Computed example of a mutant assay.
Amino acid sequence: MMANLFSSFDPLSSFANLSLNWASTMLALLFMPYLFWAMPSRASLAWSSLMMILHKELKILLGPTNPGGTLIFVSLFSLIMFNNFLGLIPYVFTSTSHLVMTLSLALPLWLTSMIFGWLTRTKHMFAHLIPAGTPGPLTPLMVLIETVSNIIRPGTLAVRLAANMIAGHLLLTLLSNTGATLPKSLLPILLFSQLLLLILESAVAIIQSYVFAALSTLYTSEVN
C-alpha cells in the first residue's frame, strides 16, 4: 500500500537507461518562448503584471543597494511555481516534492550569500550573531543559537516546499483511491471534494513559491 501510495513520487522510472521523470522540470521552458514572438494576450499581460508586482516587493526586501538582484528571485519564483502546477497534472512528475530538487535551489543561494558575507563583510556578519540588547552572560548562548538557526536555513526552505507538495498530492491520491469502493451515490461528493482540494493545491503551489522566493530574498538581504 505504501509503495503504491508513494509511487507518484518515484524518480527512478526510466526509458533506455535515461531517467525521464526529471525532464518534467524543464517543461516550464516550453511555456516561455511564445512570449517573445506572439501577440500579447491576457495571460501574458497578467503574468507580466505579476512579475512586476513581485519585483517591487522583493526590491523592498533587498534594499536600495542591490536593485537588480530581484531578477534571480523572480526567476526562482517562476521555476518553482511552474513545477508545482505541472505536478498537479496527472502522470507528470512533481520534481519540487523531492529534497534533491529543493535543496539544489536553496543550498547554492544560501552558501554563496554566506561566503560573500563572511569574506567581504566579516564584522557585519559577526554583528548578526548577537541581537541588539543581549545581556553579556547570554552572549555565547545567543551566538550558538543564531549560528544553528543560520545553518539550518537551506534545510528548512527545502523541507517546507517538499513537504507541502507531498502532503497535497498524498491527500489527492488517498481520496482518489477510495473511489473504487464508494457507492455511486457518494461519487459526486468525492468529485466535489477532489475539486476543492485541487483548488487548494493550486493556491498552495503559488503560496509556497512566493514563500521560498521571499525567504531567500530575506536571507540574502541580511548580508547587505
Rank of each mutant, 00 (worst) to 15 (best):
A3L: 11
A3W: 10
F6C: 08
S7E: 15
F9T: 04
L12C: 08
S19P: 04
L20D: 06
A23S: 12
A28V: 08
P33T: 09
L35Y: 13
A38M: 15
M39N: 12
R42L: 12
S44E: 00
L45M: 12
L45R: 13
S48A: 15
I53D: 10
H55A: 14
H55K: 12
K56R: 13
T65N: 09
P67G: 01
P67L: 02
L71P: 00
F77E: 06
L88M: 14
L88G: 01
F93L: 06
L99I: 12
L105T: 00
P108Q: 04
P108R: 03
L109R: 00
W110Q: 01
M114K: 15
I115M: 06
W118L: 13
R121F: 03
F126I: 11
F126H: 14
H128K: 13
I130A: 05
I130S: 04
G136N: 07
L138P: 01
L141A: 12
T147C: 01
N150W: 08
I151Y: 01
I152C: 06
T156F: 12
R160K: 07
A163F: 04
A163T: 02
N164T: 02
A167R: 04
G168R: 00
H169E: 10
N177G: 03
A180G: 06
T181W: 06
L186E: 10
P188K: 10
S193D: 07
L196I: 12
I199F: 11
L200V: 07
S202P: 03
V204P: 00
V204Q: 06
A205K: 05
V211T: 02
Y219E: 07
T220F: 15
